[in-house]
Design a protein around this nucleic acid. Structure first.
Lengths: 190, 190
DNA sequence: GCTGTGCATTGATATAGATCAAGAGTCTTA
DNA sequence: TAAGACTCTTGATCTATATCAATGCACAGC
């Protein structure tokens, strides 16, 4: 149940035996059916989720009812409305399962506790956030400077498998373009 | 010279006397004239910079020669091409001073050393990155979902003073719109 | 196996914002 | 203080992408 988590941690830090043994107690396991919500806008995001299996998406919904995906979270990713999770504010994000998934949940109190008791985790999250920051920066540049086609190509370079695993309309939403535009782009790229 | 840095740190963590005394040795002070570069694309970003005075901007330049600002870094902000700084890759960002500024520079080796020797700093950067991640996330949502006018209003809410301190064309570039469009938006908003 | 619901494609049209261009205002610096 | 160099504004187009609409396809549930 925790193997994906340990696997993922190992890529960035070395965990002591002790830390290894301590870690699970902070988390709670949960199974999500396809389309099941982990969080809805307006709620308080009580937990940070680690995706141990499947695929989740986090998104906002605008006044016109349109979905805007901010994150596609695969196995090994963390997902949450961080602002809400950290600052105890109302969430602006929805989070749900794109396909049947499994997550490990940690509450804010447990998160802080874990960081204190296992200094390796403090380090892990500093590195994780540091890397995420880089990724988000590049995405922001892409989003502000590129044409729709360039954005799509850029995405394919980063995640070559994305076309196979994720429906077109979700990819379009993630890129901030319409499914129609993405469909037309794909046609010209053949 | 370090007062802005200590001030900034104090907002997130408590520094021990010892840490307080140790910290300065990791940094190097530098004065930047207006328009002076801290980093240019293609170079290796050897340092992370803390802005102790003034205003810097980080940006990319596309094939058409157009500037796309990814960050406006005021007093109290950190700026660098993180990907380059962390992974020792060639930088894709330019960083220069919008106005005469002062920065504290730390090399990658010193950064890692500092994080090891002063655990409070490990915590500081984890919190800093965590918060930045939230900010970037919102900016990404804004960038993908909002109209030019909404983006501008959103920016004014976050940084009400930005209009006074930063030239229009830089704000436009930061928002990913043209100066002309921003000018027209301002007219309709009066 | 049939039926409905959601996803992808394609076409026609609309539109936000870019681009191009010119002029006025305002800093800089020599 | 004068000259040049930016910066902002305004107007006239142009274009990438959204929107609206219709059809075909595929998979999930009965």
């Amino acid at each position: 149940m925790f193997s994906t988590l340990f696997q993922t941690l190992k890529e960035k830090i070395a965990l002591s035996e002790e830390a290894h043994a301590k870690l699970p107690q902070f988390f709670e396991h949960k199974t999500l059916a396809k389309k099941e919500f982990l969080l809805q806008e307006g709620a308080y995001c009580k937990q940070l989720a680690f995706v141990s299996k499947g695929l989740l998406k986090s998104y906002t919904i605008d006044e016109k009812g349109q979905e805007h995906i901010s994150l596609l979270a695969w196995e090994g990713w963390w997902v949450s409305d961080f602002k809400s999770f950290i600052c105890d504010e109302k969430a602006i994000l929805f989070i749900d399962a794109v396909e049947a998934s499994e997550v490990l949940l940690i509450t804010h109190e447990n998160y802080e506790l874990m960081l204190k008791e296992i200094p390796e985790m403090e380090r892990y999250f500093r590195i994780l956030y540091q890397n995420s920051l880089v990724t988000k920066d590049r995405r922001l540049i892409s989003s502000n400077s590129y044409t729709a086609e360039e954005k799509y190509k850029h995405l394919l370079e980063l995640y070559p498998f994305i076309g196979k695993q994720v429906p077109q309309n979700l990819i379009a939403s993630f890129l901030g373009i319409t499914p129609e535009t993405l469909s037309r782009i794909k046609k010209t790229m053949l």
